[in-house]
Design a protein around this nucleic acid. Structure first.
Lengths: 185, 185
DNA sequence: GATCCCCTATCTATTGATAGATTAAAGCTT
DNA sequence: AAGCTTTAATCTATCAATAGATAGGGGATC
């Protein structure tokens, strides 16, 4: 089965947005990417904001789906955190781009209001997932602290790897941090 | 002495760019911010790329100046890293925005070539500074690893604090990481 | 008088967005 | 089955607004 138009539009929009940001995506670019006219893009997503919301929704859903798959056999906290890392790593290596929400999170103040919530929840859900992956005996506050640190470092490492064109930086940082964060009780 | 036009232009451009990214800044916006005409903005910065380069240069210079000041009395690695943190923290709390290079680093693929180098060097210099601040007895590789992690986490924490409108997240993450990174030999 | 700085005026390209025609398929009615 | 209606998805054509950029004029200062 072929991909329908909305899927192809979202693919094109995600590709562009994860490289140049929200304002680097235009309806005409998407139109030429998908071989339709820009007015037809508006048929699927009347406002750019609508497109943005759909993009974030799809991205988040795909991210957490991938996270479930990657962590399905994980038992220990360590295994779960490596699953988390693996999903981030895939986004960087396979898509050759930073996290959509990481980029939009930086541009937050310039985004239409409807997008802000999606980005915020993405990170909340990230932190929650990592918190739940950490050892049970840690306090809630301690879990929050470590989970936030892990998510922040993954995002930062992604951005730095991207901007220095050196993906190994991501590997180095996240590997170090996971072993280190778990290394002490 | 009043600020000259270029300084006011860079102020306005930095304000906007650190909130909405490179493509959210327009010559007309800057013109109205500084009460001149957009053609006069072109007098100072003929191309947008020129403006971008000047912005990054000034930002980097100011950053490392602030770092020198903040670390002038620092003796121990721990004190130096807290100075590093303090400068990042100031950028977040006082400017109420993310790091210019952090945002541009994410948008890298959509930037004019001339800007790319500036952003890359900013991070290289960051990592180098932190490396030099770490204890002497660590290997070069170990220093690189920890320095990259610290810089990445500061950037990521800044972005997450910004996008969740909760600056304390930055404090929590960076405090945890500095004490933790130094805590083990 | 040359230089610096800003102006008016204008150009072309691109932006997000809309109106209205067209086409084809799907569903109903008789 | 044939004819009619509706819906979905695309098109052409066009807007007004905004983008980056340039040409050339005017006043101030050195």
């Amino acid at each position: 089965m072929e991909k329908d138009t909305t899927a192809r539009l979202l693919d094109a929009a995600e590709y562009r947005m994860r490289r140049g940001g929200y304002n680097s995506v235009s309806f005409r670019d998407l139109a030429s990417d998908t071989d339709i006219k820009s007015s037809s893009v508006h048929y699927h997503y009347p406002k750019k904001e609508d497109l943005g919301v759909a993009l974030i929704d799809r991205y988040a859903e795909r991210f957490f789906d991938a996270l479930m798959v990657a962590s399905s056999k994980a038992q220990t906290p360590k295994e779960k955190l490596y699953a988390f890392r693996k999903v981030y790593r895939g986004a960087l290596y396979e898509d050759k781009a930073v996290c959509l929400c990481g980029l939009l999170g930086a541009e937050m103040a310039g985004l239409p209001p409807a997008l802000v919530d999606g980005v915020t929840s993405f990170f909340e859900a990230n932190v929650k997932w990592v918190s739940d992956a950490l050892p049970d005996d840690l306090s809630k506050a301690e879990k929050y602290k470590r989970a936030s640190t892990l998510v922040a470092a993954h995002q930062g490492a992604m951005m730095m790897a991207n901007s220095s064109d050196d993906n190994k930086l991501f590997d180095t940082v996240t590997e170090f941090l996971i072993s280190n964060t778990l290394g002490q009780d």
